[in-house]
Design a protein around this nucleic acid. Structure first.
Lengths: 204, 204
DNA sequence: TTTAAAACCTACCAAACGGTATGTTTTTTT
DNA sequence: AAAAAAACATACCGTTTGGTAGGTTTTAAA
């Protein structure tokens, strides 16, 4: 019991489990989830196949754990926390999206957004993935809605605005630009952000 | 020389080649490109593996042919042609997107859009795919730009609007809603379309 | 210090994968 | 009708895949 992660002490087993998930996240972000083999993962972790299957009863259980234990907290840090800062609603949303797009070194435009990728790939194929990913998107949309609603109350956003509709529209834009970025790189991020700003000012 | 396709007479070889591409398109739309095996395809076409490799020297060459010979014409029919109808710009764009989303029986919300799917999956992994898919998106964006420009000239769209920016924003929205639809189905299409209409009226 | 549980390792397996080699049939040209 | 080219079929191959069996080491509780 001497391994440390984020200031927490972990049992050895918990630590290896977590590194497996982290490495699986890294590889599947670039190669896709299905194309990432268990052999790929254990090669990068220098953990044996026996250890892998001690912690996860099959690949998909690992994949679900990866979403819950790596991507969920990552989404929280990149999205929920910044949106709770005390700024005008539209500014807060714009800054958050710009920050995710331009200032997250772990994300490479050519590989898009891990969450978007795995939705695209796995939601149609596996109901368990679909459920847990729906939960993740629900949370981000709820957070956006709250910000827009608060903006309304502060009189900074149009009273007639349908916040559910608008927050969904913002999310689809983000998902789309992450996809387009795979073709055109950061250049198209800039143009997207400009038009996003225009859209946001249109709801003020 | 008696096989007929779209009113054209095809040599037998050309016909089988085309059916291979069509079936490959069908399966890979639902399973993903990489997860679709050659055995899957030949099982559905009742064509032998020898025939497959007579027509394509490997799987990726088939995949590229599938994009060029199936998806490209499909994009043309669903996008370019409708946008050239004589309507006000924003109306034309809205109708086209609504039609693709709601009135294309071959597309199932849970499986998204074939073009978006294969961009997401293959653009980061294979430069040949990236190139041909960039071409496809370029053409759709150019078509959108032309429509917006024409709308400007007719005085129906704001003079200050950056058409490149706006057309890209519209495309990212479409890509995103196709992704979100995998989680929430047609229900979210409706809400997206409402906000799209709001956005389009904001550029008038 | 003993003991039991947790954590891990090695070697293996059947199925599926993309692709090839070699031959046969069908179609077209001469 | 003969010859050549196009179009296909069958059987196979090496590799990779997710997963298992069975034993060994490491850690923590008694």
């Amino acid at each position: 019991m001497q391994k440390v992660l984020n200031g927490k002490f972990l049992k050895k087993g918990e630590y290896t489990r977590h590194t497996i998930l982290e490495k699986a996240f890294e590889i599947s972000y670039k190669k896709g989830y299905q194309a990432t083999s268990i052999d790929d993962i254990i090669a990068l972790t220098s953990v044996s196949k026996g250890a892998f299957f001690y912690h996860f009863k099959n690949k998909d259980e690992m994949g679900l754990a990866m979403i819950n234990e790596i991507m969920y907290p990552g989404m929280y840090e990149a999205l929920v926390i910044p949106l709770n800062e005390d700024k005008p609603a539209t500014q807060s949303i714009y800054d958050m999206i710009k920050s995710i797009l331009m200032e997250t070194p772990a994300f490479d435009p050519q590989y898009g957004c891990p969450a978007v990728n795995i939705i695209e790939e796995m939601a149609p194929l596996n109901v368990s993935f679909k459920k847990v990913l729906s939960g993740l998107v629900n949370e981000t949309q709820n957070t956006l809605e709250k910000v827009l609603l608060k903006g309304k109350e502060e009189g900074r956003i149009r009273k007639e605005l349908n916040v559910k509709q608008s927050s969904m529209f913002i999310i689809t834009g983000y998902m789309g630009i992450r996809n387009l970025g795979k073709l055109y790189g950061v250049d198209c991020y800039q143009e997207y952000l400009k038009e996003l700003k225009r859209y946001l000012s249109s709801i003020e």
